[in-house]
């Protein structure tokens, strides 16, 4: 009985994780411009990753494998949003601006100095 319950939980977690991963990829292809694609990527980064790893954790039971899965989860949980932020920030600094929705005016960021002009690599 308990085994069937666990198998059911694993099934639901893995399948929904796979679903969200594919949704994120579809969004990356379908969205019209860079700024909206960032959000699609973050769907598979958060929901797909968390659900798939949780499913594998439940499947593996209590063992060293679970610990490794949790470590991978923690690493992705911290680095995923950080790299998304890094990409978005680099795009903003390079002068790419998101198109605003109807009737909205975006906040203009502080004028940033041209990084290529002010820095000299060693």
């Amino acid at each position: 009985m308990a085994e069937m319950l666990i198998a059911g939980i694993v099934w639901v977690l893995i399948v929904s994780g796979a679903f969200f991963t594919v949704i994120g990829a579809i969004g990356i292809v379908r969205f019209p411009d860079f700024w909206s694609r960032l959000h699609a990527a973050s769907v598979s980064d958060s929901a797909g990753m968390i659900l798939l790893l949780a499913g594998m954790c439940v499947f593996a039971g209590w063992s060293l494998i679970t610990v490794k899965l949790i470590v991978i989860g923690v690493v992705l949980f911290i680095t995923g949003p950080t790299s998304t932020h890094a990409v978005a920030n680099a795009a903003l600094v390079s002068g790419l601006r998101p198109p605003e929705g109807k009737g909205l005016t975006g906040t203009e960021p502080e004028p940033l100095p041209d990084p290529a002009a002010e820095t000299t690599p060693i």
Binding site: T21, G24, A25, I28, F34, R37, L38, A41, S44, D45, M49, L76, G80, S83, T84, V87, A90, A91, S94, L96
Partner: peptide
């Protein structure tokens, strides 16, 4: 753009 590609590489890595 370049940033689309970096984003794609990052997502590819997560996958």
């Amino acid at each position: 753009t370049l940033y689309d590609r970096v984003l794609a590489v990052n997502a590819f890595g997560t996958h």
